[in-house]
Write a protein that binds this DNA or RNA. Structure first.
Length: 550
RNA sequence: GCCCCGAUGGUGAAACGGAUAUCACAACAGUCUUCGGAACUGUAGGUCCAAGUUCGAUUCUUGGUCGGGGCACCA
């Protein structure tokens, strides 16, 4: 619908002599203004040297003809020169009927058809516990994956996990210190890591010991050590897998630092002779200053590749394993500097890969008090958070499965409701809201609609049609374009905001209108079905589960 | 010191340069339980400061204040 209006406006602007004027078509914040509004006349008036109001009048007249009165019942000019469009009764009814009939296809798009998009997210580190930062990456990454899939692309879900590096040496040292030979839980590993990390900072001798251990792990010649490493890694990965399952993520590729370290180091060393990298104080570095950035070490003076070199290796490995048109990496915003330098280096090494790769930063999940640090061992783990919220949701539901669905919904909503780049202030005491603006609010609205539909299966009575559309109908019409915008802007929060308004409007409808047994029963059932379809598809795109009852 | 990001009612958030700044929590006042109240209705309260650009600025520019992050061998 929006697309049709946009096209008509473009035609008008082209005829008027301002084909390049940038304009928006939006849903007015006040529904009394209509279903769509555009600032096109305001935007083009200056370039054309015309009065905005009179240009708006011309545009309004043009749109009435172009759209026809079966689409737009009313086109008016308001304020400084906005053109407001009110959809015809039958156009709204048609869209609602479409939503009710299309099922899971409602809101899907073809803009990305034929494209292969790799999304790399979550990225926890074996030997450390998965904390709420990784949870945030997972929730956002999964939703982006679903949005892009909905846009028609083939999405390749990737997860890059740091199974070598100093943190591993610290954890293994810690396991030895604590006398754990057969670690069986992620928690044990987390404690071992915290112990190793503390010792590393406190004692220079231990630091040297752990550094040596780190070198040994890279070499991989000490078979007893390799066995310790393998055991710990397996325990970690199994624990991660359990969480992915609960969160609803299934990865296509797992990449490990143990497989990018060597190739990354080799590529970086080759890059020295090409003049991309240079040696300095025994280390191999990239001088970011030549592009207005800062210098980063890619290979340490001890010869081990850093995170940067491994990421170079990863970029090549991804290209080799899964050809893609676009590659997105979802991580915390603290890494933007790292990725800027990395991409600068990659541009020189492999411009094609660099051009199709982008970093999608997300904010932190910040605690209201105190700083979270896995080194200190005071992290909020992903599993712990899910468990706590599930317990809280369990107070309102006897079914543990539903309690978990509600908990996952509440957590995901908290993350997805706001712009992905900004931090989330998280108060573990107050925990998460299950009322008002929340995941359960959306889930509950859907449950209510589904309940009506199960009763309605018995048949319909009333066949009257209300004269004007309900507010909920006018909102349903916008779902496809909201999904597209959220996809194009990589911002699931756009969809979350819309779904919250949709749920609110449904609850209002539910409170004021009787569906079953009313004179308009057949019509209202269709509205309920259209709402349920829209909400179901919306929740699916966010990765929020839709319980059957609550 | 340099670089990046942010600042919106008491609290947490939304607003693709547009119309009377939206939503929830908390507060206060109601709905009364006929398709399930994790709901609905109403009241009160807000754009960090100062300039600038613009017909129009929460949004863009510059300066300041405050906060977060990054800046050579961690990831």
């Amino acid at each position: 619908m929006e697309e049709r209006i946009r096209k008509a406006i473009k035609e008008f602007l082209a005829r008027a002599g301002a084909p390049d004027a940038a304009f928006v078509v939006e849903r007015p914040s006040d529904s009394a203004h209509g279903d769509y509004a555009t600032n096109a006349a305001l935007a083009a008036a200056k370039a054309l040297g015309k009065d905005p109001r009179s240009l708006a009048d011309e545009l309004a007249r043009y749109l009435i003809d172009a759209l026809g009165d079966s689409v737009a019942s009313h086109v008016s000019v308001a304020g400084p020169g906005f053109v407001n469009i009110t959809l015809a009764r039958e156009a709204v009814a048609f869209a609602v009927a479409e939503a009710a009939a299309q099922g899971s296809e409602w809101g899907s798009d073809t803009a990305y058809a034929g494209k292969r998009v790799m999304i790399d997210y979550t990225d926890p580190n074996p030997f450390k516990e998965m904390h709420i930062g990784h949870l945030m990456s997972n929730v956002i990454g999964e939703s982006l994956a679903r949005l892009i899939e909905n846009g028609g692309a083939t999405v390749i879900r990737a997860n890059y996990q740091g199974d070598v590096g100093p943190h591993v040496a610290k954890a293994i040292w810690g396991l030895r210190k604590l006398g754990v030979t057969e670690p069986s839980t992620a928690q044990e590993l987390g404690e071992a890591y915290a112990a190793g990390s503390r010792a590393y900072d406190e004692s220079p001798e231990t630091k040297a010991e752990i550094d040596a251990l780190n070198q040994e792990i890279y070499k991989g010649t000490d078979m007893a050590l390799v066995e310790e490493w393998r055991k710990g890694r397996d325990v970690s990965l199994a624990a991660f897998e359990e969480i992915y399952k609960r969160l609803g993520t299934k990865f296509d590729y797992y990449f490990f630092e143990s497989e990018t370290a060597e190739s990354g180091a080799r590529i970086v060393r080759d890059g020295v002779s090409k003049g991309v990298f240079e040696e300095s104080e025994g280390a191999v570095i990239y001088r970011g200053e030549k592009k207005g950035l800062h210098t980063l070490v890619f290979i340490t003076s001890r010869g081990t590749p850093t995170y940067e070199a491994k990421d170079v290796g990863l970029a090549f490995l991804k290209e080799e394993r899964a050809q893609f048109d676009r590659s997105l990496i979802v991580t915390a915003a603290e890494q933007v500097g790292h990725f800027k330098v990395l991409f600068a280096a990659l541009e020189e090494l492999a411009p094609v890969i660099a051009a199709k790769t982008a970093h999608v930063p997300h904010g932190f999940l910040r605690l209201t008090e105190g700083k979270m640090s896995s080194r200190e061992g005071n992290v909020i783990t992903a599993a712990g958070l899910v468990e706590d919220v599930t317990k809280k949701a369990g107070e309102r539901s006897e079914d543990p499965l539903i309690a978990e669905q509600v908990a996952i919904g509440a957590i995901k909503y908290m993350v997805l409701r706001q712009a992905p780049g900004s931090d989330i202030i998280f108060d573990p005491e107050k925990s998460l809201s299950l009322d008002g603006d929340s995941g359960p609010y959306l889930q509950y609205a859907l449950v209510r609609a589904k309940k009506i539909l199960t009763y309605a299966a018995n048949g319909e009575s009333g066949t009257e049609v209300p004269k004007s559309p309900y507010a909920i109908e006018r909102l349903i019409v916008h779902f496809p374009e909201v999904a597209i915008r959220a996809t194009n802007e990589l911002s699931p929060n756009i969809l979350t905001t819309y779904l919250t308004e949709l749920a609110s409007e449904w609850n209002h409808f539910y409170a004021t209108e009787q569906v079953l047994g009313s004179p308009e029963e057949a019509y209202k059932q269709r509205v309920a079905r259209a709402f349920a379809t829209t909400m179901t598809n919306g929740l699916t795109l966010l990765g929020i589960p839709a319980p059957e009852r609550m």
